[in-house]
Design a protein around this nucleic acid. Sequence first.
DNA 1: CTAGGGTTAG
Length: 628
Amino acid sequence: MLRNLRGRFLLFSSNATINKVRFSNCSAAYAVSDDSHEQSSSVSLTDSRSLPESSRDTGDYISAILSCKSVVDVGKIHAQVIVNGFLQELPVANKLIYIYAQFRAIADAEALFEEVSVKDSVSWSVMVGGFAKTGDFFNCLRVFRQIVRLSLNLDNYTLPIVIRASRDKKDVVVGRLIHEVALKSGMDLDCYVCAALVGMYAKCGMIDDACKLFDEMPKRDLVTWTVMIGACADSGRLDESWVLFERMRNEGIVPDRAAIVTIVNACAKLGSLHKAVILHDYIRLMNFPVGVILGTALIDMHAKCGNVDAAREMFDSMKERNVISWSAMIAAYGYHGKATQALELFHAMLERRLSPNEITFVSLLNACSHAGFVEEGLEIFDLMPKYGTRPNVKHYTCMIDLLGRAGRLDEAREMIETMSIEKDETLWGSFLGACRIHKNVEMAEKVAISLLELQPQNPGHYILLSNIYANDGKWKEVAKIRNLMNQRGLKKVPGYTWIEANNKTHRFKVGDRTHPKSKEIYDALRVLTEKLEKAGYVPDTNFVLHDVDEEVKVGMLSLHSEKLALAFGLIATPEGSLLRITKNLRVCGDCHGFFKFASLVTRREVVVRDANRFHCFKEGSCSCGDYW
DNA sequence: CTAGGGTTAG
C-alpha cells in the first residue's frame, strides 16, 4: 500500500492534483487529473464542509482520517496528506498510523511509522497499540523494548497497552517484567497503569498480587475499583467483591453502568437472592438506565439467584434485546428445569428472525436434558446446521447427557463413536455420569480409563468412578481408586452448603459443629429425621463411599451439609417461609430424597441451587422430577 | 493526535 502511495506521490508532485474527493457518507470517489484549474473547487474533506485546499488545516485532515470506512479510504487521504505536505504534522501522521492499525493494515501502519523521522510519544504508543490490536504480541513487545532502550518517556498510554497484551496472553512473566519497568519509571502508581496491572495479575491467576497492588495504591479511580471487583469475582472471592463494592461507594465513588454490571455478575455467581434484591433496588433508586448489557446481566442474576420470574420480568421490560439476552433467558429456564418455556422462547426468537448462536443451542439442549425432553433435544440438535451453527463438543456433551440420563446409553455411545469432533473430558465425564445413574459398571470402566488419561488431575472423575464401584459393592476397586488419588496427591473437593437466614449467610460442611447454634441444629435434625422416616423416608446408603456397616452409613449420611443447612433453616426462619439453599457440588442423592419428604412434612418450599441447576422442593416432589 | 472496566454455556 505504501509503495503505491509513494508512486502516487511522485505522480502528484509532477503537476498532478487531486481533482475530486468527496466523503459524503464516507464513500470515497476521486479522480486524478493533470488539470490544475479545477483544483479544490469541490473538495470536501469532512461531511459538512467544503474547503479550498489552501485553508485546510490539521484538524480537517484528522477528521477526514477518522471518517474513513475502509483502508482504501485511508490510502486516499494519506495521498492527499503527502501532496499537501501535512505529513510533517505529527498529529496527522500519528492519526494515520492509528487508523491503519484500526483497520488491521499493520504493515501500512508500520511503514508509515518508520517513515516518520521525528516521532513523539503518541507515535510510539499508537504503534505499540496497533500491534496489540492485531494480537501480535511479539512485535508489540519489540517496539516497547525499543522505547525502553531509547530511554523515551513511558506514559500511561503505552504501559497499559503492553500490560493488557501480557494479560491476554496470560504471560505473567512478561507482565511482571513490565511491572518492574513501570516501577523504575515511577509510573506504577498511575491509575491506568495500576488498573491494567491488577487486571493482568488477576487474569493470570495471581489474585493475591492483584490485591496487594490494589491495596497499596495511593488513589483508586472507578475503573480500578471495577477491575478489582471483577477480579475477585473471577477468582471466586465473591464476598470480597461485595465488600469492595460497598467500600468503593463509602469512599464517595459513584458506580457507572460497567461497574454495576460487574457487581451484578458477582452477585449472580454468589447466588444470593437477598443481595440480588438489594442490588436491583439500588439500581432502580439510582435511576440507572438499563441497556441491553445491564438488562441481560440482571436476567442472569435473578435467574442464578433462584428467581426465574424476576428474570422473565426483566426480560419482558427490556426495550432492546439481543441474542445474548434471549440466550440468557433460555439458559435460565434450562437450569430451573423449565424446558417447555425455554423451547417457547426459542421459537419466539425464531419468529422475530433473530439468529440463535452456538451458546443459544447449548442452553437449549441443556434445558432439554435437564427436563428429560429427549425427542425435542434430538430435533433441536438436527436443526442446528439450518442456522449456520455446527455442533461443537459442548453440543455433543449436552446430547450425551440427554441420551445418557434417559438411559439410552447405547445411543449415547454410538454418538460418541461416530462424532468427528475431538472429545474432551467433559464429554466423557457426562457419559460416565450416565453410567453411574444407570449402574452400568462395564461401560463406566471403559470410559473411566480414557477419562483419567485425559484429565488425571480432576478429583471429580475419581469420585464418580469410585461411586460406581461402591454402588456395585466393589470395595476393593474403591480402595484402589482412593490409593490412586492419594498417590497423585488429589483430594475430593470439599462440599459446602450455604443458607440465607435473617439476611446472613450460614455455611456448613459435613458434620459441622462450628455454628453457634450447633446443638439446636442437631436436635432439630434428629426430630425431623424421625418425622420423615415415619412419612416413608428411607436413607439411601448407595451414596456412601465407604465399606462400613449399614448403620454407620446411615450415620454418615445424616451429617451431610445439606441436611444441616436445612435443619438450621427450619429453626431460624418463620414457619411456612421459603428456604433457599446453595451447594457448591451436586446435591447428594440421599439428601435429595430427604428434602422431598421434608418439603411435604414441614410444609415448606425449599429452593436448592447446586453446581448444575436448581431444585425446587414442594409438597413432596422436586421440580427436577428426579431427573438431574 | 492515544486509553481502561461490562452481557449468554460448560
